[in-house]
Amino acid sequence: MRYVRITLRTVVIVVVLGLLHYVLPQHDVARVTSTEVIRMDFSSFNRWFFARSDSGTTELTTRDIRLINTERKRTLLLGFIRREAEGVMVYRNEDTGWIWPPYFKFDSSDLQATASANMSAPGVEQWAIITHYGWRNRFFTIYPNAVGIRPVEGPDVRIIPWFNIFFFAFVIFGYFFLRAMWRQFRERKIDPVLDSAGEAYGRVGDHASQTRGRIGRWLDSWRAKPRK
């Protein structure tokens, strides 16, 4: 039973962290080397990792995808540690429109133009910060979606992830608020009901004394614990 609980808990935590890692914005320091458009014939699986066609258009099973090819600085530990090494990275550039994830991006064409305008050439290195979400996976053919490109002077720029800071601060606030709400609910709504239920059990009779012990303990587990 204990192992089942630990396993379930681990699965839930891994799924939630994975979802956050996929959806939250991240910043890469990169040089745009080229842009291109390829036709994508989605499989039922990799379709999950693409957003939608341009927001004013209609959705078909196959369509063109804008790609931004880059050379970017590699990082360690979710981007917190910058490395000197470089590697290629390909971003897709798609509208998210009104759907999930809520980036409300409608300007894919403009972003493609921005990428082209800040193209890097041999000898003329142009660095940029590419804000994106999503994962690159070669086996499933999925790409992170670029949501913003900002040209910078050089690769040694300080990036402060304001959105993620506020997001996690809000999550912590929400956790404590929800906990306070649950405690109040238990104290004001569940405990009074349990008290009267307990009295009703007391009236049932002696033969129920054993059951009362077990059910009573279960009822007690719902009661508010004394506040520290």
Binding site: P102, Y103, F104, K105, F106, D107, D110, V147
Partner: peptide, 12 residues
């Protein structure tokens, strides 16, 4: 926040 997000993301 949604409106602000739309403006910030799509502003040129």
């Amino acid at each position: 926040l949604v409106v602000a997000n739309i403006v910030v993301t799509n502003w040129n």
